[in-house]
Amino acid sequence: MKLKKYMILILICVLGCMLIVVGCEKSDSKKEPKEPTTVTIIDSAGNEVKILHPVNRIITLTADNTELAIVLGDEDKIVGVSDEAVNYAEIGDKLTRAATVGHFREPNLEKIAVLKPDVVIGYETSIEKGIKDKLESMGIPFIVCECNKFETFEKDVELMGRILGKEDKAKEFLTFHHSVMNMIKERTKNIRPDQRTQVYLSGGWGKEPCVTFGKESDINLYLNTVGAINIASELPGNKITVSPEWVLTQDNIEVIIDHIASTQIKPTTEPLIEVKKIYMSDPVWAKTTAAREGRVHIMGWRVYKGLRFSIGLLYCAKWCHPNLFNDIDPEKYHSEYMQKFLGLELQNVWGQ
């Protein structure tokens, strides 16, 4: 009898504890979300900017920042984007709820004001053009976070992670990025200076073959990473135009790499092959070693110098050193990126 009473007493205690836990959960679920607080961040240009944290409404004026916000899982916070972002392969389909606010160089400030963003994120050129000052006079913070420069890429990704309160997701993306970069560095580390592949890297968007990059361009860092050298790296200037006569004197151009806009990328190789034909049939370019040996390659901008540049460098590494990367398929890594960070299957052809 005593045992029975004791067991009943235990059962009552257990039920009481369960009711307390359920009550606590209900109480917690009714708690109001945390009110945003004001924090000061240092942006990519070294400016101190006060913003609400966490932010709930953002406008991204660059396609790289737009894609990164999606990678970090905050596409629902994007209320406005630049015109070109909505037309990019893959990411455009994820921006159906975001308004377009014009070109990043000259955004529609009135439209931005109507969208009431917590912050606008863009290139440093927006400071030079006075866009930052105009936005801040309207009470809208502007943050420089570019995500397309070799030297500052990691810091920019971390900065975006902090702005959105997605530091862990930013670390996850950087882990993937570093895994690809480290593989490239490991496989090319023993290449001697005299073994570097001589590359002509065009900046003509598949339309102006004679536009390339000189000694002041950061593009040289990208090629150095894959054990290659920019054939125009000693020419003065950043983005420059070379003459056909100059091209004919460069009898050691081993590989030619050009790019097209991400808006042109399709599920077939056709857009890439069309640009390749320009080099193969041109009376000047056809005389280069690269064209004669069929080593002319084209890629989409997003992997050329965008958020996915580690994948672009993997394409370049394989094109420059096929013997060192004969077992590597860049599309496999591109596919992994798409699935893991964009939740999509890779359907388009980005390199040829």
Rank of each mutant, 00 (worst) to 15 (best):
M183G: 11
S137R: 13
A113V: 10
K185L: 14
G130N: 09
P117S: 08
Y123T: 12
A113K: 12
F150K: 14
E110R: 04
L95W: 05
P141L: 06
G161S: 10
V144H: 01
P107A: 00
F142R: 05
R105N: 08
E106F: 00
V101Q: 02
K129L: 14
K129H: 13
C145K: 01
D93I: 01
P141N: 10
F173K: 03
L135D: 01
I127E: 11
D93N: 14
E186L: 13
A99K: 09
D118W: 04
N148D: 14
L109C: 02
A170Y: 10
S126L: 13
G165Y: 08
K132N: 04
L159Y: 01
V180D: 09
L135E: 00
I163Q: 02
L159N: 04
I140D: 05
A170R: 07
I140H: 05
H178I: 11
H178C: 12
F150W: 15
A170C: 11
K169M: 13
V157N: 09
N148W: 15
V157W: 08
S179H: 11
H178K: 15
P117K: 06
E90G: 00
G161H: 09
P141S: 09
I143Y: 04
G139H: 08
L109V: 07
K155N: 15
E151F: 06
P141W: 06
I112K: 01
K185P: 03
F150L: 10
N108C: 01
E158Q: 15
R105D: 12
L109W: 01
I91T: 01
K132M: 09
E146G: 06
I163R: 04
L109S: 00
I112G: 00
G122A: 05
A98N: 04
V120M: 06
E90N: 12
I184C: 07
K116C: 05
P141K: 06
K166E: 14
P107Y: 00
E151S: 14
G165H: 09
K185R: 14
Y123I: 11
V120Y: 00
L135P: 03
L174S: 10
S179M: 11
V119F: 04
A99D: 10
F104Q: 05
E110L: 02
C145I: 07
I143R: 04
P141V: 07
F173V: 08
L159A: 07
C145R: 03
F150D: 13
G161E: 08
G122H: 03
E136S: 10
E128G: 15
R105P: 00
P141M: 07
K171C: 11
L109R: 03
V144W: 06
L115E: 05
F173A: 06
L174N: 08
I131H: 02
P117W: 05
T96N: 11
S137H: 13
E154R: 15
G92V: 03
N108T: 02
E110A: 02
N148K: 14
K132Y: 06
K111W: 00
L135Q: 00
L95A: 05
F173S: 02
I131P: 03
H103T: 08
L159W: 05
K129T: 15
A99M: 10
I121Q: 02
F142Q: 03
N108G: 01
F150Y: 15
K129S: 15
N108K: 01
D168L: 13
N182I: 10
L174T: 09
K129E: 12
A98T: 08
E124R: 15
E124I: 12
S126F: 07
S137L: 14
V120A: 04
I121G: 02
T96Q: 12
K132I: 03
E128Q: 15
